[in-house]
Measured scan of single mutants.
Amino acid sequence: MQVTWGNVTVTFSNPEEAKKYAEKVARKLGGQVELHNGQFRIK
């Protein structure tokens, strides 16, 4: 499962870890987490 924002992509084998990481990054950037085609995207 991947977490992407800007031109950065981070890949996780565990979807739960990916979700936690995406939420943490979104909080830092003041963005929203979207699940899109099996990727968490931060907008």
Rank of each mutant, 00 (worst) to 15 (best):
M1S: 11
M1E: 03
M1I: 15
M1N: 09
M1L: 12
Q2F: 07
Q2E: 10
V3Q: 00
T4K: 09
T4F: 07
W5D: 03
W5I: 10
W5Y: 10
W5H: 07
G6W: 11
G6K: 06
G6T: 03
G6N: 09
G6E: 06
G6V: 03
G6D: 11
G6Q: 06
N7R: 10
N7K: 12
N7W: 07
N7I: 08
N7Y: 09
N7A: 09
N7H: 12
V8T: 10
V8Q: 08
T9K: 06
T9S: 08
T9L: 08
V10Q: 05
V10K: 11
V10N: 03
V10R: 10
V10I: 14
T11W: 15
T11D: 07
T11G: 06
F12M: 04
F12P: 00
F12S: 00
S13Q: 13
S13N: 13
S13L: 11
S13I: 10
S13D: 13
S13R: 13
S13C: 08
S13Y: 09
S13A: 13
N14R: 09
N14Y: 06
P15H: 14
P15S: 12
P15T: 14
E16F: 11
E16Q: 11
E16M: 12
E17A: 14
E17Q: 12
E17V: 12
A18R: 00
A18V: 01
K19F: 14
K19V: 06
K19S: 07
K19A: 10
K19I: 08
K20Y: 08
K20L: 13
Y21I: 03
A22K: 01
A22C: 03
A22R: 00
A22W: 02
A22D: 00
E23F: 13
E23W: 09
E23S: 06
K24N: 09
K24T: 11
K24F: 15
V25Q: 05
V25G: 00
V25R: 03
A26S: 04
A26W: 02
A26T: 02
A26K: 02
R27K: 14
R27G: 08
R27I: 13
R27C: 12
R27L: 14
K28D: 11
K28A: 14
K28R: 13
K28C: 15
K28S: 09
K28H: 12
L29M: 08
L29G: 03
L29W: 09
L29I: 14
G30H: 09
G30A: 05
G30N: 11
G31S: 07
G31W: 07
G31K: 05
G31T: 06
Q32P: 03
Q32A: 09
Q32F: 15
Q32W: 15
Q32C: 12
V33D: 00
V33A: 05
V33N: 00
V33M: 05
V33H: 01
V33Y: 06
E34S: 07
E34Q: 07
E34M: 07
L35E: 09
L35D: 05
L35N: 05
L35H: 07
H36G: 05
H36I: 15
N37C: 13
N37M: 07
N37E: 11
N37H: 07
G38H: 15
G38N: 08
G38S: 04
G38Y: 04
Q39R: 08
Q39H: 14
Q39I: 15
Q39L: 07
Q39M: 09
F40N: 01
F40Q: 02
F40W: 15
R41S: 08
R41D: 04
R41P: 02
R41L: 15
R41Y: 15
R41N: 10
I42E: 01
I42P: 03
I42R: 00
I42M: 01
K43W: 12
